[in-house]
Design a protein around this nucleic acid. Structure first.
Lengths: 191, 191
DNA sequence: TCCGGGAATAGACTCGTGTCTAAAGTTGTA
DNA sequence: TACAACTTTAGACACGAGTCTATTCCCGGA
């Protein structure tokens, strides 16, 4: 990918914002028409459709990383920060549905989406893993395998978000945050 | 879908077994060649590619439902059965990778894959929901919203399974079961 | 044995979509 | 001005999904 000039990038990202969820389904031709750009131009800057999609997802990940980073590095003890980060992830998925609907597909074909998957690992997974490791070190958390647990947490949030998006078209942020996050943190057996 | 005769069904399912993960990517023509069946015949019995893919996934779900059903209805208290069911889900995903790699995509396009998604809900989600409800009733579990929690558990297992499949080509069943399941049940904060 | 009718299949065709090629336009520099 | 290098673009191409038509195959009943 030959990074596109500012003007083109803006047009494309504007289009990608209108495209919630269905990202991977749209045709290059439609993207070109919506952005009012010749199809061939897209192939000049992007090595193919995947590259173009990656560009979209990458942008969303970039925006997401700000919100998540803030939650991770914010005030509070480890548990509070973990809660905030989970909440931030859910919010990010509401604002950028493609992050939750398309990411599993990208992970599945990690070979084709190397870049994006690496970014996603950095933005959506690593923060959890590090919080878990920190919490384990201080004794605030009980973690067997930080990596596996981080993946599990992300997967849980992802699946819940996707179900809601598909069924209702949006995410009930307030209620879901209040219900899901304590459940993940506390587990399902009584204390 | 005009249900296909036994012989054809067998050939197709044999092919689908070889196709781990990449299911949705293969062309109808290739499927036809692999199964040694004329392409026209496939369109005679199936209304299209989605219908064919659904047939594959449906078969895997059917096989999965046996193992999961056994775990749900087996011996032990609610917590033990929940553990067994989570373990069964993980095992099923190892044996039928398509169930974990393709299902998120099918859920995303639930409109196109109504049948399969309904089946998946019945086979992979409902069992958890019911166990959670039962456990909540007996006081063995503390559940705020059984549906959301069931989706979260399934999502957690799904994501962990998919990561392992993509990264290592298989699932380390023993170790992952031992690590992941207690973590999901117990939560992350000390008791 | 012949025949009618449904099942199965070959093969051609349309249409949409990703990708490439080659030409035209533009810009910077000697 | 001349030229090279880069940008931009139109148009062609290839391939796969899906459809349709016209055979061929097969079976049960007269």
């Amino acid at each position: 990918m030959k990074r596109p000039p500012e003007e083109l990038a803006e047009k494309l990202l504007a289009v990608s914002d209108q495209l919630s969820g269905t990202d991977l389904d749209i045709s290059v031709d439609d993207i070109a028409k919506m952005a009012d750009v010749p199809r061939a131009t897209l192939y000049y800057y992007f090595s193919g459709k995947e590259d173009l999609i990656s560009f979209f997802l990458s942008d969303k990940l970039h925006r997401a990383s700000v919100a998540i980073g803030k939650a991770v590095a914010g005030e509070g003890n480890v548990v509070e920060r973990l809660e905030n980060t989970l909440a931030a992830l859910l919010k990010v998925m509401m604002e950028h549905p493609a992050l939750c609907t398309e990411m599993p597909g990208a992970i599945k074909e990690a070979a084709k989406y190397t870049e994006v998957v690496n970014e996603a690992e950095r933005v959506m997974l690593a923060p959890f893993r590090e919080l878990l490791i920190e919490g384990k070190a201080t004794g605030e958390l009980v973690i067997e395998d930080a990596n596996t647990t981080a993946i599990a947490l992300m997967g849980a949030v992802n699946m819940v978000a996707m179900f809601q998006l598909v069924q209702t078209g949006t995410i009930d942020l307030e209620n879901t945050t209040a219900v899901l996050i304590p459940q993940l943190i506390q587990g399902v057996v009584p204390r």
